[in-house]
């Protein structure tokens, strides 16, 4: 399927409203947004049925620019709002977009519980290893030893692996891509949105301004090249030892499993409640 880029821009962006956007030149957030829009275009979803909800941070500005039902919530809480929306109106197709700090630091508890609860939601997490909007402080995914404005002398904590965390917490579908692998990313997002259950796509993205610069990783282009060079597919990764995998980024589908989803289960709860009422 060829993707008419201009038609997508015209159809899905609030171009007459709030552009220019807040993202720095070369930022990976635009690539993620484009991939999301391509996935939605391919799925032929109506704009009215989509809710794009976000937390706080650079990537969380994305909903502002897109012509859906959009919800810019508080820091870390996008999934809690999304949970209420989905439970109250299961017909909505709810996608959340969060950053690494947003989803796994301040919102970490909501994230693992959303995975456990298994609503039919999609969570896209843009992982750029740093708090960009506030000026480059270390986040839960900042690698050990890295420099940030709050780890000037080298970071002494260890980083979360978001996708693996989601797998362990019980998500139905978990995948990872990088902003270099744009074509793969939009396929993964589509798969995630089609998945019946809690689906997570972690996207490794570049913040060359706040993270790359301080850690001598180069500009946007250099960082994307690093992603290209270090990415290994899930299939390939299975054959590699732990030592060989060090520093690599595993991309592709990590988990895809069928589990009861809570909106469907709740329908049964309603039925059982009414049956119990009948017995009285």
């Amino acid at each position: 399927m060829t993707i008419p880029a201009q038609a997508i821009r015209h159809k899905y962006l609030r171009h007459n409203k709030k552009f220019p956007h807040v993202w720095c030149p070369g930022c990976g957030n635009g690539i993620v947004m484009a991939a999301l829009l391509r996935a939605i275009y391919r799925m032929e979803l109506s704009k009215d049925e989509i809710v794009l909800a976000s937390g706080i941070g650079c990537s969380s500005r994305m909903p502002t620019y897109t012509d859906f039902n959009t919800l810019h919530t508080t820091h870390g809480r996008a999934l809690t709002f999304a949970t209420g929306l989905k439970l109250a109106k299961p017909s909505l197709n709810v996608v959340t977009i969060m950053g690494d700090g947003d989803a796994t630091a301040i919102g970490g508890n909501h994230f693992i519980h959303a995975a456990r609860r298994n609503l039919n939601l999609t969570a896209i997490i843009v992982n750029n290893s740093i708090y960009g909007m506030t000026g480059g402080q270390y986040s839960p995914t900042t690698p050990f030893g890295s420099k940030s404005t709050t780890s000037l002398y080298g970071h002494i904590e260890h980083d979360f692996s978001i996708a693996e965390l989601a797998v362990t917490a019980g998500a139905s579908f978990v995948a990872r891509a990088t902003v270099y692998h744009a074509a793969l990313m939009d396929k993964l997002i589509e798969q995630a949105m089609r998945k019946r259950g809690f689906a997570v796509v972690e996207v490794i993205s570049n913040c060359h301004v706040q993270y790359g610069r301080r850690n001598k990783l180069g500009g946007a282009v250099e960082m994307l090249k690093t992603y290209r060079d270090n990415a290994v597919t899930v299939k390939k990764a299975e054959k590699l030892s732990a030592e060989e995998l060090a520093g690599k980024i595993t991309i592709g589908v990590l988990t895809d499993r069928e589990m009861p989803i809570s909106t469907e289960e709740y329908k049964k709860v309603r039925q059982r409640a009414n049956e119990a009422e009948g017995e009285l």
Partner: peptide, 22 residues
């Protein structure tokens, strides 16, 4: 619908979400 959330932060978020759904 009744939902027991992971904490009160989430409870408050969820009721806002549900109210936005009408």
């Amino acid at each position: 619908t009744f939902a027991q959330m992971e904490d009160e932060i989430a409870s408050m978020g969820a009721i806002i979400g549900a109210s936005l759904a009408g």
